[in-house]
Design a protein around this nucleic acid. Structure first.
Lengths: 144, 144
DNA sequence: TAGCAATAGTTGTTATAGCAACTAATATTC
DNA sequence: GAATATTAGTTGCTATAACAACTATTGCTA
């Protein structure tokens, strides 16, 4: 393995790309008055898909710290997009689900997200997508 | 382009991979009492390479907001790793450079960083590295 | 079954990220 | 050359990230 390869700047490149995507998403959310952040969207997306899950599961699904999830959920509850329900069989658990307004928010934002994903993948093939996925998966698995 | 491709979760995967790398780096920094954060390291690395630059240039080089750079530099100054010098020809500018302790910090941390980069690229080839770089560059360029 | 360990979640603290508003200095333009 | 625009940097604010410490509950085990 070459030294230039070992001392590669991929961390920087990953970080820069992610920041660019995140800023682009946020600017579009703001421009269309969606009144949510990118990470709030990620939680909404998962709640739409999984209907009714705990903070813990949501944290695992989104690769977020449970404290971060707890605080984002708090903001979403304040916006009436999400509601919490204590579990009856295990009273430590708190279930979370979208309110009707939360479901509407999902449906409002979703087309914009698809559009932006398309923009990001412009000039790239499905093979490129598979390559990126494969490489990131290997890196992820390499790290203890 | 397939719908599954358009609705791909690459943002999530990028985010998850970057978090894993960042946490791994931070844990190793902490374990060896390096007393810096990952982003502080990124600034130190750039300051070592460029010797004496302004906040603005540092922000551009690291893809960070200038306010973020300003605050990280503040922390590094408190640790005596970095010193600021007002420019004489343009008194708006502030030049930043490593102190001797800052240079020592770079030399202390550098081998660990190379080791961790190697770990991340385990089971991957130089071709994979070039593919990742290419794909991320295209995504970056796609986004307005 | 009493004591201890593990789990779910919250709160406090520090760091990074980005926007807006601000100061100070320099550049532009009429 | 004076008014205006632009640029470099700081400060205030809100959001996300991660760790530590904490409460409440549940599970395990001697």
């Amino acid at each position: 393995m070459h030294d230039t390869f070992v001392s590669n700047p991929s961390f920087f490149k990953l970080d820069a790309t992610l920041k660019k995507i995140r800023n682009y998403w946020q600017k579009n959310f703001d421009a269309r008055q969606m009144d949510i952040t990118v990470d709030q969207w990620l939680l909404i997306e998962n709640l739409y898909k999984h209907k009714r899950i705990t903070h813990n599961e949501l944290a695992r699904l989104t690769s977020k710290d449970i404290t971060t999830v707890s605080r984002i959920i708090e903001l979403l509850v304040k916006k009436d997009l999400v509601e919490r329900q204590g579990s009856t069989d295990d009273r430590r658990k708190v279930f979370v689900q979208l309110t009707p307004q939360g479901v509407n928010k999902y449906k409002d934002v979703r087309p914009l997200v698809l559009e932006m994903r398309k923009t990001g993948w412009n000039n790239l093939s499905e093979r490129d997508y598979n390559e990126l996925t494969r490489i990131l998966d290997v890196i992820y698995a390499n790290i203890p």
